[in-house]
Nucleic acid binder design. Structure first.
Lengths: 216, 216
DNA sequence: GGGAGCATGTAACGGGTTACATGATTGG
DNA sequence: CCAATCATGTAACCCGTTACATGCTCCC
């Protein structure tokens, strides 16, 4: 048995692993398929890839030897290219899954940024933005449920299903937090309505040295 | 009154607005201060900026005219530079807050990616990763609470406080979802333990045409 | 004296998005 | 026949990260 020492994994980015992951369920898929599949699973918690990224990731994976491809569409110019994971790819997946340090979850919440800067905005508009976000979360929740139903009872999809259930809960929580904040917002509006007449700008000024004296 | 038509806002990225937002509370701050402040507020829901980014953002803001700076440290070579928002900056902030389309929240959840690919990994390791994530969420929750306490009772910080409370709830929910998934994981392990002996690889193979027949 | 924190930057890299371009197939 | 969908790609751009570099000041 030659070369049994644990060779270094090529340091791929998580998105590359996610792409390989899509192939690791055993299907032979086109870039187009991949994108669609990502759109009803990975999208909820990780990634909504663009086509261009998918295609370049796939080419990269093939170059490394983690995937192979073949062109099907008869003898045409622009043939459909189907990708399949290789044994080397499967092994690399396993090693990555078990050995690679887990990247922390990243959240970039544009809506909360707006709320955080609430003093600069019109209260009514703030409220509107929140309501929209609430509705969006609810929509995502429903979609996640639908996709989870599609995945249920498929024996190979136990883990994706588990994550889809997590996602459902995630959007449910997101919705509920938006509702809670809506209530906070109204409470704040009432309080500020009582204590000031109309001053729109700079209610924040002065608050000087708390920054400096705040314990890290 | 010259030039009253609504001039176009320079299309800054959200992170630039976030930087300007940090200044919009009225303080005169150094890049270093800015970073620290971001670290105990924006970090929870949006952004943990690097110094290099902070400094380049600040230079950009000054160039546009949304901030001014002055060097304090006597006549030294490497003086400390303090930035302050300008009236133009304040007005731009307000317009952005009220008029700019809100970027959707982005989530990139490395832990869930691992779980989604659970079939490729060792169950015990999977569990470990989840537990770690759970603990991290709890840590963040506690930090958010602490920072919220620091911000409470400051009249100008009502909105940041509101978001900090949202963040507290966020990490609480994150923790609880991790716990729930831990339970799911154990249930799944028991079920799979009953139905198969030891096959590690490819329990997922075959699951063939469901993909193609799945309704988008 | 030395380490921790203060303070500011430059340069390289690359990942990911957007815009653009092309054309086939399918169904109403 | 025309629109939608299938299907694949290139090129430019730039945001953000990482690594590197420098030197101060305060405090033990």
């Amino acid at each position: 048995m030659p070369n049994e020492e644990p060779t270094d994994l090529p340091s791929l980015r998580p998105t590359s692993w996610a792409t390989l992951g899509l192939l690791s369920f055993g299907e032979e898929l086109s870039g187009y398929d991949l994108k669609k599949w990502a759109d009803w699973s990975l999208r909820f918690f990780y990634w909504a890839p663009s086509y261009s990224q998918i295609y370049s990731e796939l080419r990269k994976l093939e170059e490394i030897g983690y995937a192979t491809s073949r062109v099907v569409n008869k003898d045409d110019v622009r043939g459909k290219r189907l990708y399949r994971i290789t044994p080397a790819g499967e092994e690399a997946m396993s090693r990555w899954a078990n050995e690679a340090p887990v990247e922390p979850a990243v959240l970039k919440h544009g809506v909360m940024l707006r709320m955080w800067l609430g003093h600069a905005g019109d209260p009514a508009h703030l409220r509107e933005v929140l309501v929209e976000h609430r509705d969006h979360a609810e929509k995502m929740r429903v979609r996640a449920i639908a996709d989870a139903e599609g995945a249920a009872h498929e024996p190979g999809w136990a883990f994706p299903l588990m994550v889809l259930n997590w996602s459902t809960k995630y959007y449910e929580d997101e919705r509920d937090r938006a509702d809670a904040m809506l209530a906070d917002l109204d409470k704040l509006a009432r309080k500020q309505g009582r204590s000031r007449s109309s001053r729109r700008t700079s209610s924040a000024r002065r608050t000087s040295d708390e920054l400096r004296s705040h314990s890290s």
